[in-house]
Design a protein around this nucleic acid. Structure first.
Lengths: 259, 259
DNA sequence: ATCTGCCAAATTGCATGCAATCCTGTGCTT
DNA sequence: AAGCACAGGATTGCATGCAATTTGGCAGAT
């Protein structure tokens, strides 16, 4: 009998190799170049990250080892490996003898993450501008089309993920793997912060900013691209409710969360 | 009978909790705040990182799971966890079915690491300047004294490590945990790069630059601190032989290294 | 003497098992 | 009825065992 038969239980995570054709672009490229799917632990990790990026996994959610093992068809050893990695990236926190939970970034941490992005992303954009090729321009445009399509089609999950993927795509264009890795982590953390502090009047991410940034990059104006990037990030951060007193429910949730 | 008796075999790594009193400052603080020594895997990881920072472990060295397990007195499961983490940080590379090896950063990767440091460290220095307190100034001075002492005493290992710790100390002062984590990783990678590409006429790291930077920070001149930091990093990078043709032995070594 | 094919030893990849810890709910005390 | 103690079950932390892969070397062939 199949040991992992309970995989049918699948919950919100989904382990299937994404039959969806295009859309899975950047994320998969990263995974491939990262480790060539060397261990199956990466599979678990990527699944969790993806779920977070698509806002299917929420801050504070418990990530039980057995559950994940059943979902992905691997033993707890590998799940544990994945969780450990995620913990080091600040995406998950592990409480001793209690298990792993999706991180609940504090306000201070959120500010730090955005500060880091404001430092790194303009540099990335500038570099991408220098190295822009017609092929990249095409990829960028294709991405933007896909992004607005998902927005128009009210495909919430896809549009959230693609919004992050835009930044990753630019990082990829920059050809700087260190920045790329750093940004990848920052984006995932941003996604959690957005989930925690998103103001009710939402629509944080329009595709317009991305369009402008892409145009600046393609037209070779690196300084402008960097400036727009900073502005874009500022806008996102300001769309969050990061005043300590603002939304008591969210702060409560954070404060009361078992330590 | 003690299962891990073979620990006596200890090689270059050393697992003992460092009876040395002071000097171990920054590195240990980081470890503590990171995970409160939550798992013993951290112990393995920290040991390896420290060995790299002190240039006791060289690029390309094989890190056998059993060996490490014996040295640190843990099972392969935990060793594996530590190695996996290090691999993700780019400090170690894992070859499928072949094992883990200390990374051999390429010239391109080295340039990327230093580019990232030149971006991040001035920002860190500026932030540290803003947040400087008398206590911090004192810590900084104490560190510099220790650093020159180790230099005067020709304590190679300590002086190399302390040189890196200076940067980490500034990052700690900045109070920005994201930058701190990023820099920590970059410094370890730098250490490997230096080991690979150090020009024969060495003496890369005098304490003078550090002194100047510290003075700028303490005197509240953040811009100057940032500028000096960039200059310092430039100097280090230029002390490396990063021309593709320069040192054929090193390039050969890198090119021929089993893929 | 060099090359090729194959077997044994060593090593990795991963699942499982066991002890320790934590959670839950039941019954007892006040 | 409210509070407390404790037992049973679930979950984590870690070591070990087993299959698969690689390595190194030896025998035989050319």
């Amino acid at each position: 009998m199949d040991k992992y038969a309970k995989a049918a239980k699948r919950k919100t995570l989904s382990a299937q190799p994404q039959a969806r054709e295009k859309s899975a672009t950047v994320q998969q490229d990263r995974a491939k170049q990262d480790a060539a799917q060397q261990h199956r632990a990466e599979l678990v990790r990527n699944g969790i990250v993806r779920a977070i990026l698509e806002h299917r996994l929420h801050p504070g959610t418990k990530l039980g080892e057995d559950d994940l093992g059943n979902i992905y068809g691997v033993s707890r050893t590998l799940v544990r490996l994945a969780l450990q990695t995620l913990a080091r990236e600040g995406i998950v926190i592990m409480k001793k003898n209690r298990g792993a939970f999706v991180a609940q970034p504090s306000i201070a941490q959120t500010r730090e993450v955005f500060e880091a992005r404001r430092l790194i992303e303009p540099a990335i954009a500038a570099r991408a501008t220098q190295r822009a090729t017609p092929a990249f321009a095409k990829a960028l445009n294709a991405h933007l089309i896909e992004e607005s399509a998902s927005l128009a089609g009210h495909d919430e999950q896809a549009s959230i993920r693609l919004s992050g993927d835009f930044h990753l795509l630019v990082a990829q264009m920059s050809g700087h793997s260190v920045f790329q890795t750093m940004l990848s982590e920052l984006i995932t953390r941003s996604s959690l912060s957005i989930l925690m502090y998103k103001s009710s009047r939402e629509h944080l991410c329009g595709v317009d900013h991305h369009r402008e940034i892409a145009d600046a990059i393609i037209s070779g104006n690196g300084v402008r691209a960097g400036g727009l990037m900073v502005h874009h990030l500022d806008e996102i951060e300001h769309g969050l409710e990061l005043e300590r007193s603002s939304n008591p429910s969210k702060n409560l949730e954070h404060i009361l969360a078992a330590r």
